[in-house]
Design a protein around this nucleic acid. Structure first.
Length: 284
DNA sequence: ATGCAGGGACGAT
DNA sequence: ATCGTCCCTGCA
């Protein structure tokens, strides 16, 4: 990938914005688990250089959504003055298009916990049940396939630190394996219908569904509302006044819908900038 | 020490 | 619609 193509894009900020969990920095290089391959990028004077193990064509463009028309998306989001400012401050932040199965498993593990815990769970799963990949002389592990995941027992999942999330992970694995849940098809389905399908899976609620839709199923209008986004909406827009700290399903959908209306077709981009902004100064 | 929060969702009232 | 509970860990 020629650096010039990606001069205005910063994978480091994108990863640090909390949308993907399995990335780690080694010296000046970053390595990430992306489904069945390991991604790498490194900083150089001219920008960033990417590679993947094994070598796979187009995976960088795919993962970092380099085909998105960022200018037009930015222009649209800039109708909101706060977002316009954030776009300037954190200009290199982009949404990613993660491996959909990995993304779904990841966010199922993310409920009611924190980022370090999520990383621990997922890295443990990868190490135990993923494929070993050597990159730059170091050992990495791919994310286990749905088939591999479906063969893990609940006690084994709990041994990975999943706790009560083990049942949800099993339900997801079962759904994908049985064909009940067809993630590839959901990429081509509209937002509302795709969300309905995801919500059928045990352990997947509205917030997780929106994360998966936004971060892996190309639904840029998805607007996941976690505790931080809720705070942002309360602080900067006063939208949460009548709501408490916790949102009911009804309130979640109501709020998510008004966010979609306010921020436009690519509301999910605005969400990611808001999330990153709210998390400044925090160290996971 | 004990409590509590941390990218929620489920099940019983 | 509200409320307790779920597993686990770090931190105050």
């Amino acid at each position: 990938m020629r650096p010039s193509l990606v001069h205005d894009f910063d994978p480091e900020i994108s990863i640090n914005s909390g949308q993907a969990f399995l990335w780690q920095q080694v010296d000046r290089n970053w390595y990430g688990v992306h489904g069945d391959c390991i991604m790498k990028f490194s900083k150089s004077k001219d920008g960033f250089e990417f590679s993947s193990f094994p070598e796979r064509k187009g995976v960088v463009r795919d993962l970092f959504r380099l085909d998105d028309d960022v200018d037009s998306i930015s222009a649209e989001m800039s109708r909101d003055p706060l977002i316009a400012g954030l776009l300037k401050t954190y200009g290199g932040l982009r949404l990613m298009r993660q491996d959909s199965a990995q993304c779904l498993f990841s966010f199922v593990c993310a409920s009611n916990t924190n980022i370090p815990m999520i990383r621990r769970m997922l890295y443990t799963l990868a190490k135990k049940y993923g494929q070993k990949v050597t990159a730059d002389g170091m050992e990495f592990h791919t994310f286990p396939s749905a088939e591999a995941m479906s063969k893990i027992s609940e006690p084994e999942l709990r041994a990975c630190g999943l706790g009560y999330r083990a049942k949800a992970v099993m339900a997801v694995a079962q759904g994908i394996e049985s064909g009940t849940l067809d993630l590839a098809m959901l990429k081509k389905t509209g937002y509302a219908d795709a969300k309905q399908e995801l919500l059928k899976i045990y352990g997947v609620g509205p917030k997780l569904a929106d994360c998966v839709l936004l971060f892996s199923l190309d639904k840029l209008e998805a607007f996941p509302i976690d505790i931080w986004i809720a705070r942002a909406l309360a602080t900067h827009y006063g939208w949460l006044g009548k709501f408490g700290e916790k949102l009911t399903t009804r309130q979640y959908e109501e709020l998510s819908e008004s966010a979609r209306k306010h921020f436009g077709r690519h509301a999910g981009y605005a969400q990611q900038y808001l999330y990153y902004h709210m998390r400044q100064g925090k160290k996971w």
